[in-house]
Amino acid sequence: MNTLEWTFLIWLGSLVAGFLGSLTGLGGGIVVVPMLALGFGVDIRYAAGASLIAVIATSSGASAAYVKEGFSNIRIGTFLEVATTLGALVGAVATSILSTRSISVIFGIILVYSGFLSVRRWKEQGEIPWESRPPDPWAMRLKLNGSYPIAVGSRSYEAQNVATGFAMMFGAGVLSGLLGIGSGAMKVLAMDQTMRLPFKVSTTTSNFMIGVTAAASAGVYLHLGYIDPGLAMPVMLGVLPGALLGARRLVCARPRDLRILFTVVLLALAFEMIYKGLSGGL
């Protein structure tokens, strides 16, 4: 296989990565790392660099649409970014103290459990909105409410359990600093399960935030020589149109279908993390 054919195949895979990443709010990294490392035999460091580019491309590419259409909540995103960026800094420092392998395994197990919670939710209730509750005073103070487009008109929502959600986002940031992953999974789960935001708002706001988390590590990756132009080119040019297609698909998708897709990708990610932790690399 010469470089031309190889570039084309990576481009094609990245197209799928961008599509899944923008629909689930998980970023394109989950597909790109195993594709490059296992499918193409690329060294894990180059794969990690390419994954970083995939995450930023998915985030910025799809957010352009999600923000304009009123799915991503800018205030919720900004508020939670404070937690994730602080967490990421703590996580980066903690890498020298903690064993990332065992953390990978624990994280994977948490994801499997969260996957079951997510499945249970659509099995039990279909996809009806969360029941009404007295508003969280923090949500009022911080204006963590909004409305998003549904099939006809729009539906309003308000964040619940703001303090717990913020703490979970800090945890998501620590994980991304520790493991070098975008931790979109934790972000979606915190917004969906804890803050009880509508599923589309959770995934698109996660999509909005993961670019910032990834950009924070971009300096280190570039400096260490993980960002290779030969890989970056097909990954970026594939992920971008994929993310735009995903963003277009999300508008009319049923939340229930999105949740099923999210859970499937989440479980794949969980096994990836457990495998990575047990084998010490992909």
């Binding site: 470089t3 190889w6 193409f40 690329v42 460091r45 180059y46 993980y226 132009p229 030969g230």
Partner: peptide
């Protein structure tokens, strides 16, 4: 990236990709 990528493929398209080991950029 598209401009750079086209030049890159013209120049290196027929060579073999080398990514199994890590040399760093």
């Amino acid at each position: 990236v598209l401009i750079g990528g086209s030049l890159y493929l013209v120049r290196y398209g027929a060579t073999l990709p080398q990514y199994s080991g890590f040399q760093g950029e």
